[in-house]
Amino acid sequence: MLTIKNLHVRLEAEDKQILRGVDLTVGAGEVHAIMGPNGSGKSTLSYVLAGREGYIVTEGSATLGEQDLLVMEPEARAAAGLFLAFQYPVEIPGVGNMTFLRTALNAQRKARGEPEVSAGDFLKLVRAKAKTLQIDAEMLKRPVNVGFSGGEKKRNEILQMAVLEPRMCILDETDSGLDVDAMKLVAEGVNALRDAGRAFLVITHYQRLLDHIKPDVVHIMAAGRIIKSGGPDLALEVENNGYADLVSEAQ
């Protein structure tokens, strides 16, 4: 599904190399977790895959299925099935949450040559998905993420994911700022979307999210590279011993 080869990325604004040769392959139906210390390049990787400006790819490739992600506009990547749940979901005053979701869904469908979803069908769809995430009608009416609590913002990200039905989902520190109950709710939302045709890349600092979203593979990232990969046990090892040993081992 997602294939990243030898990806090197630096910042556009300053001469600073962030990613130094990331190799990663996520197959359909799989859940991969990326853990790593602050500044290891985890969020940069998610932004580069989603197409955010401000980064320059100096080497390597990233493909989604057969498509070269790195040459595509962000909206084209979304239409191709890539989704990034933001670490800090953006507040957009003046744009209603429903308008936003419907515009996004129909734009993606249009890009894929599919018919638009009618207002009635869309309402039904969103209400059903919102219910399972305990998102009430009031939240749907409000402007995008404006006045939402941390937990509400993250649930809203998962709602977007549920409505847009991407095949490759990247979750960038979705657990940050969440209490245990909120984290469970978000994890349940993610788990409900797990199926054979969909893959997840879960970026997190802590092992606890992975108690709720069980990964197939865990990668440790440090200094812009994946330094170690393994099963779910690797996450526990990090939880117990920290990153220091792994990082020095890799050096």
């Binding site: 909206e75 990547r77 933001f86 993606q108 890009a111």
Partner: peptide
Amino acid sequence: TALFYLRSRGVPK
């Protein structure tokens, strides 16, 4: 940031 957020959801620029 808002522009990228919208585009990342599939809304053309």
